[in-house]
């Protein structure tokens, strides 16, 4: 469904991606793992049309995304839950969701989906008319995900949705992602939380210094000795604790 071939990207003189190739098949939940500064967010921003790759190609459902601005990428069916959530704090919860559905014209469907989001995320349902800035971190994350779902995407991309959340809420986010996957959504998930991610993904890529170092099923990746300490630093050593995370 989504294919990145040898994608290079840079910020001015700083080279962030040195040939990233990734494949996400329809219905898959694919993980993109790597330490801070590895190039995960940059990879997502090139997909979203925010950063223009200096080399390589990106295709979605067989069509090249080259040169498309962000507002066209979402129309192709790719929705983004960005790093740091980036909800609109001065708008109400409902207004945030309304913008999530900006590309859709059908008001009846919008009403229906709004109700559905209220059921999927009861906290949001209760706070529709509250300004989004008053929500807690976990609630804001739910809002960011709900907002992305409002565009009815074919591919949902999430950038470190568990970052900065309390352990209980981290579990909740991972359960939600696993559920969306079961319901048929194709998902590309960026995480530093290796242990929890490998529990729910179909396949994962490990990227480091702007390159894919390794890829495979969770079993294949786990078999690799010391993968976590090599790529993600010592803080993830809390294996099995379920809350390990890369160094901030």
């Amino acid at each position: 469904m989504l294919e990145l071939k040898d994608v290079h990207a840079q910020y001015g003189a700083i080279v962030a991606l040195r040939g990233v190739s990734i494949h996400v098949a329809e219905g898959d939940l694919v993980g993109l793992l790597g330490a801070n500064g590895a190039g995960k967010t940059t990879t997502l921003l090139t997909i979203a049309g925010v950063i223009k790759p200096s080399r390589g190609e990106i295709t979605f459902r067989g069509v090249s995304l080259a040169g498309l601005p962000p507002e066209m990428i979402v129309r192709k069916g790719i929705a983004m839950v960005p790093e740091g959530r980036e909800i609109f704090p001065t708008l109400t919860v409902q207004q945030n969701l309304r913008l999530g559905a900006f590309i859709r014209r059908n008001r009846v469907e919008y009403r229906h989906d709004l109700e559905e989001m209220g059921e999927l995320f009861p906290i949001l349902g209760e706070r529709m008319h509250q300004s989004a800035g008053t929500l807690s971190g976990g609630e804001q994350q739910q809002l960011a995900i709900a907002r992305a779902l409002m565009s009815r995407p074919r591919l949902l991309i999430l950038d470190e949705p568990s970052l900065g959340l309390a352990p209980r809420l981290v579990d909740q986010v991972f359960r939600l992602i696993a559920r969306l996957r079961r319901e048929g959504m194709t998902i590309l998930l960026v995480e530093q939380n290796v242990i929890q991610t490998l529990r729910i993904v179909d396949r994962a890529y490990l990227i480091s210094m702007g390159q894919v170092e390794m890829s495979g099923t969770p079993e294949e990746l786990k078999r690799h000795v010391d993968m976590e300490s090599v790529y993600l630093g010592a803080t993830v050593a809390a294996r099995g604790g379920g809350q390990g995370r890369g160094a901030p």
Binding site: V50, P69, I73, T90, L99, G100, F102, I103
Partner: peptide
């Protein structure tokens, strides 16, 4: 209005607003 809400959102975070499909 949706356009008005988009305008406020863009004033707050232009990049994110575009990522939701609001044309720059």
């Amino acid at each position: 209005t949706v356009l008005g809400i988009a305008l406020r959102a863009a004033a707050d975070n232009f990049r994110m607003t575009r990522m939701l499909g609001v044309p720059a």
